[in-house]
Nucleic acid binder design. Structure first.
Lengths: 212, 212
DNA sequence: GGGCACGCTAAGCGCTCGCTCACCCTTGCC
DNA sequence: GGCAAGGGTGAGCGAGCGCTTAGCGTGCCC
């Protein structure tokens, strides 16, 4: 049910692996700026400023502005995939694993709304090569969820007429959390995760769809 | 079940009301450009070029680039609201009306993916006043869907523990269609609409969740 | 058929963009 | 203490941005 390594700050931080400290600060500043204003509306001066550096400093660590977006997108997708894999490969019935996958995936999108927004909505801002790489990661994300649903159908737990379509809808539902979720809103990430897990179990026709 | 006035072109066109012909051409060009590249990445020269005019021509019909976005957003939201109202105020059980609302709302997002993308994802690019107006329209959209769900709960057709949360999820699911739907993909807007209506009926615990 | 309002264009203003370059501090090795 | 290496800066480049302005062609009214 838990998915490890989160700070008290509320935001998951997979950025520990970004090694030169200045490079990590720049990446974090870029995530914030991209999420707030979008990739194209963000200036390199703004990113450098948020990181407390001069505009030129950015180009010591990254070749272009797009490289920043690419790095953010890849790290974010890998983290998302990791979350789903953990839930998918866990023990338990398909029902339990689907609920776990959805609730932790949703929690990630809600808590790390900043990161998730960039990851999910700025795909088109990448060049062809970078985009192709990210699309590959997305296919793996899709396969992971589809796998759980297929397991449930095979075991008789689920009743799903259109497995690919339902997979798409489940992922779509989770991803869109990054668009509307508001940290100052009435719901905590945990509450949204629980609500969505319940809704998804209903979508796949699972027998038991009750809250914890 | 039908929502009137669509061209054979596949894209709904509520733009008939935009009266000077050149202004309509510019608006349509702007919708295309904004959807493809995002508001901030679109140049006024690009918009004018698509409409077959010089860059300066744009400013005869619109005061700023933002006014174009505002107009598009308002017309789009009014159309979306109109679709939901038609379904909501129709005759039939809550189950039938919810299915109708979802399927027609989804069809609109799929068919007019270009428009819907701009309408749903460029809200933050608007200035405070324009944004406030659009947010008001969104609240009406939300109220329309919540109304149907409440009707269903009252009549005993639905079993929904969290009505506001479920309303949010249903709308979120429909809106996100604009993000992933691909005209060249394997599904027609009608198929997605039918699939989603079924999924939503499952989400609200409606008794009969079968295709037509 | 003269005047004029209107739709439009060519040229360009002031500004900011992504990115570069010449140079400057610190740090660590000998 | 000398000095190379690397992270950092200030100034600025060419380009492209949103938007303005002066002027041109056309059609309608009298």
């Amino acid at each position: 049910m838990s998915t490890a390594e989160e700070t008290a700050g509320g935001e998951t931080q997979p950025w520990g692996e970004v090694t030169p400290d200045a490079a990590r600060r720049l990446l974090l500043a870029a995530v914030e700026a991209f999420a707030e204003r979008g990739y194209h509306a963000t200036t390199t001066r703004d990113i450098a400023g948020r990181a407390g550096m001069s505009p030129a400093a950015l180009y010591i660590h990254y070749k272009t502005k797009e490289e920043l977006l690419h790095r953010i997108s890849r790290i974010g997708h890998e983290k998302a995939l990791d979350i789903l894999r953990t839930a998918s490969r866990g023990e338990g019935t398909a029902t339990e694993r689907l609920a776990d996958a959805v609730s932790s995936f949703v929690r990630w999108h809600a808590r790390g709304r900043t990161t998730a927004r960039v990851v999910q909505y700025e795909l088109d801002s990448l060049g062809p090569d970078a985009r192709a790489e990210i699309v590959g990661l997305r296919r793996q994300v899709d396969a992971e969820v589809r796998g759980i649903i297929e397991d449930g159908v095979r075991s008789g737990e689920f009743d799903v007429p259109d497995v690919p379509g339902t997979t798409l809808a489940v992922l779509s539902l989770c991803i869109d959390v990054a668009r509307w979720f508001n940290v100052d809103g009435p719901r905590t990430p945990e509450e949204v995760g629980a609500l969505y897990a319940d809704l998804v179990l209903r979508m796949v026709g699972a027998k038991n769809a009750g809250p914890a």
